[in-house]
Write a protein that binds this DNA or RNA. Structure first.
Lengths: 238, 238
DNA sequence: TAGGATCCAAAGGTCCAGCCATTGCAGAGG
DNA sequence: CCTCTGCAATGGCTGGACCTTTGGATCCTA
């Protein structure tokens, strides 16, 4: 049987593309790990046998991709980061300005990920960890939504982020955090609403988690996110 | 109550950052729309009163962000794109690469996303679209897994990708692709197995979809992914 | 000796001027 | 009318130069 050949769109191979691929491969292999420092621009250029300008372009690309951060000065240089959440978020924001995604799309994705995560939380989280979540809820409730809506909002998302971390699956946060960032930006522009409703939902959710009742927890989380969406659409972005 | 002030990390403002922000603002305002062409590098440099190198760095960043594509030659230049899904996918792949994960983590995430997607497929897909999926299954079955395992594998993922696209939520494919990419990196190394089992599962899944039976479709997809995992763990990465 | 002021080297930020490589298209030639 | 060819526009890349930032080493002083 003939091999299914697959033609690639003709994109001229640039030196820059080669460089960033080398870095990506090294990251995948573990040759480069978070915290490590790439060579200085001048040294890197020499190693790669390209000009410093070309190296700089490659570094800029890696920076935007969220793989490195660049610091100036004596101890400066390009350092491998340990999370590119910001970059993913920025991509999603860009996607929304290109009118590719709607709020409902975001919410649906959150429901998909977070309900799956919460099931694992019920299975795996220790009681201490659940108490930690209780504490986060209390912190949220202690912030006056009128006086400091942004602070309250940030507190909400700290809860969600932590909840998803407790699932034990490291992939879930990678996906969920950018979605939260997106939701956060929207909420920040809409302004405060119905703080009590959210706190009450949190209490019901925590009750279900403590009772290790996955079904109830999923139901509560889902209805919470759907409520959120209702509020958003009824108060569109200015 | 005191406002929780939030200080931003001190990041020196570079010329490059200014340029990409100008472009982002123009995109947001609608001054720049998909398909439009930015000035040539030389002209752009003059307009911005910066060197051509700086412009090039900015263009590279916008390119990685998925906002423009760059074409060489006579009618070349930087064109605003209408979709940055490719960039988001790449970001997520990078994010997962930076994260310590296991195969089970990937499978769990796939179950979360793909079962949610398939529910929407049952609701939204037309019969013609389902027929299209049937066709993809037939294509998979026609490839000899012994002779061309990579081709068969690629065919499997085409099915999954298309299935998820048919959910109608553009976020789902964006999340699913990186997961497939990560799964693919592993499968390609493991080699062929049990082609018949997979095709049979596909048939059962399609049957459920045609019958618009969401519950059965979800169950089939889930058990398929779990089966996949079983096979993987029993044949660990070399 | 502790504390502060100063100097300096390393590293990124920017610019310049030039040359090469690619590519579409207009015009020449059949 | 079609084909070939050369040109000009545009991105790709180089090498060198200079500025700015920044942290640490050094030196001075109380």
């Amino acid at each position: 049987m003939s091999k299914t050949v697959q033609f690639q769109p003709t994109k001229p191979r640039r030196a820059v593309d080669d460089i960033i691929e080398q870095v990506r491969v090294m990251l995948d292999e573990g040759t480069l790990t978070p915290g490590m420092k790439l060579p200085s621009e001048r040294e890197f250029a020499e190693q790669l046998a390209v000009s410093r300008n070309t190296v700089r372009e490659a570094l800029r690309m890696l920076e935007v991709a969220g793989l490195i951060t660049i610091k100036r000065g004596a101890t400066g240089g390009a350092y491998v980061v340990d999370s590119n959440t910001q970059a993913i978020t920025q991509s999603l924001v860009d996607g929304m300005t290109l009118t590719k995604y709607t709020l409902l799309d975001i919410i649906e994705a959150r429901i998909a990920i977070e309900t799956s995560a919460v099931i694992k939380v019920v299975e795996n989280a220790t009681d201490d960890e659940l108490d930690e979540l209780d504490e986060l809820v209390a912190q949220s409730a202690a912030i006056d939504p009128q006086a400091d809506w942004e602070g309250r909002l940030a507190s909400y998302f700290r809860f969600h982020d932590r909840l998803i971390e407790l699932s034990g699956n490291p992939i879930f946060p990678v996906i969920a955090r950018p979605l939260h960032e997106m939701a956060n930006r929207v909420s920040a522009r809409i302004g405060s609403f119905a703080g009590d409703v959210i706190i009450q939902s949190r209490h019901r959710l925590m009750h279900a988690l403590h009772a290790r009742d996955a079904e109830a927890a999923v139901a509560e989380l889902r209805s919470y996110l759907e409520l959120l969406y209702e509020r958003w659409v009824s108060r569109p972005i200015d």
